[in-house]
Design a protein around this nucleic acid. Sequence first.
RNA 1: GGUGGCGUAGCUCAGUCGGUAGAGCAAACGGCUCAUAUCCGUUCGGUCAGGGGUUCAAAUCCCUUCGCCACUACCA
Length: 721
Amino acid sequence: MKKRLVTSALPYVNNIPHLGNLIQVLSADVFARFCRQYGYETLYVCGTDEYGTATETRALQEGVTPRELCDHYHKIHTDIYEWFGIEFDEWGRTSTPQQTEIVQHIFNKCDEAGFVREQEIEQLFCASCDRFLADRYVHGECPHCGYGDARGDQCEDCGKLLDPTELVKPRCGTCGATPELKSTKHLYIDLPKALPKLQGWMSQASVDGFWAKNAVKMTESWIRDGLKERCITRDLKWGIPVPKEGYEGKVFYVWFDAPIGYISITMCHTDRWEDWWRDPDNTELFQFIGKDNIPFHTVIFPSSLLASGEKWTMLHHMSSSEYLNYEDTKFSKSKGIGVFGNDCKDTGIPADVWRFYIYYNRPETSDFKFTWKDFQEKVNSELIGNLGNLVNRTLTFLKRFYDGKLPVGKRDETFWEEVARREKAVTEKLDRAELRDGLKEILALSGYGNKCFQDGEPWRTKTEDPQAAADLLYNLAYLVRDLAILIRPYLPATSDAVAGFMNWSDFSWDRLGDLTGLGEFTKPQLLFKQLEEDQIEELKVKYSGSQAERQEAEKGEPALEEQFASEIDIRAAKITSVSQHPDAEKLYVITLDCGEEEDRTICSGLVGHYTPEELNGKTILLVANLKPAKLRGIKSNGMLLAAETKDEKTMEVLFVQAEPGTRALVDGFGDASVPEKKIKIDRFFELPLTVDGHTVKSGAASLTLDGKSITAEKVETGSVG
RNA sequence: GGUGGCGUAGCUCAGUCGGUAGAGCAAACGGCUCAUAUCCGUUCGGUCAGGGGUUCAAAUCCCUUCGCCACUACCA
């Protein structure tokens, strides 16, 4: 029997995990508990992933050191997992000396084996801080939308991904000085070179380790699309120093070091860590992650290990779950939507009940939707009505009619044949980490117990045929004992409680079906409390929507028309020239006279719909206060309005007769005040214009120009954009 | 627009190598009273998103349309 090394994805330290994030840790916990009970030599490690830009930035904002920030959050994580009853062999973190040691070691080996390449790039350097600036420490004007305080990795305003060198007036995020472009070296791991090794390993391992289907598919598509060299160094302080000459002041990129955290956390657990990580012949590595993490565990981490040229315990089984969704939306850490680890505790609903629901509906092969209603139904019917009830009715019966002693009875061969068959199914499922199906098998077994209880009618036979009743209860008592063993990986506290009623304490898997050892029972307590309608309703309301949405709802939103009128500035503009965009097939570059001092330039995707001649000289409607956006290199300073039918077959530019600069107003809401704020395109589409009976409308009000409604000729009903 | 994924009973989901569809819940009815209004049984429920193709045989493989999701783009 091989040893089993179990890991669950290292949660990033920076935030509180929600129910969806918790699935991995909970899954690995059941599996590890099962393996221990079954008799495998087992080690389950996990911990917080702590290095990287996100924590460094956050710490800076909060005025603490990264270490202090991590300590703070590490504690929060620790408390949550403890509450859920996770039985780690080692719960650690990546910011340890062991991590530094092993990451540097693996890097050196990869380097020696020729899998690390140097590349010189131009990067912004701040002279006053005397360091190269990480992408998000450079601030400046966004080249796409003109937002003044965009970060070098991504503009917070328009959402575009940026290269820091694109920023218009770059400045150092820390000291404000203007950084200069300076060439610097970075290290890349040569994944293409490792590809043949990876491919050979993967095709075998994915079969031997019966990887989840999504993991196989995603890995294959990565391999098929070809791997790129990946930069593994960063200019940060909060990370592991790169042990190479010329790389002083640089650290490893988080994704390179994070998976190695599994190893370093094991090193913190035992000096004999190599028995686990360098013993592939006798160790099987089971990893539990979410599907968003697949490539790191099936491509990048294995490639690093292979590239090192050393002997490592590689991934055996990949258990990559799908997503858990929340009511009619998704769990979101950034938006604060869903139920979070600490919320579960606050509900007063015990951890085992949460564990039950998560496992029962574990998104093993497709996404699953968490709803409070379903939570209530499943808990009440399956956990309580089925399992809880069998335990309770059996034990109270024994207490009431047999004075709490195991009656003298006879082993029912047919019964135990059936039970053994089902128990075998449970074991097989658990052994392959099919956790959801394993739990369902257990509940089916409990259901079988209920059926036997019902069919045997011991409440009647106890007087008519006392021996039949005694036999039945004798067998059922041992079934309940078996259930306490089987359910233990999933619901440890419940298992303890049931075993306690039976004065039982041996949970090893090979006791299953062994009809010895029971004698006295104590009076059973109820295992669970039903989830009541009003309680669930209350929780549903309490944890619905994001906080922002709740505030919005309280205030009451102004009418659509009013929002449109106050925020959006639409003006007539005359087209003065039209030309094909030099670098874009579908775009025209159009200049417009808007009644302003200077003409405006916009880009518009009308190629194929209109020829330049059809457009030139016409007057159109322009959304004049849009934030400028760069489309394929040319700045577009507004958007012209076109109507479109729902089927998108007919598209029509809205031509009008008016002096350039004339404002279009929302009928009944239009005052003359000009919206000052520039708006984002997304905001514009949140306040949609429609065409109804050829008339352009915002909500129920029509859009007017010089007092007359604006109409579309060809489009009768549709949208404007 | 491109790429990938998904679409199965009222709801939430299974469905392996192609062999004319399953579970739980919900609903309806019946039974039992040991048990937390619990348990047992019966019934109802599906053109497997639509269309086409391959095949003796398609939820499954191929093409196509529609709808949803993710990433991505010259999205205006």
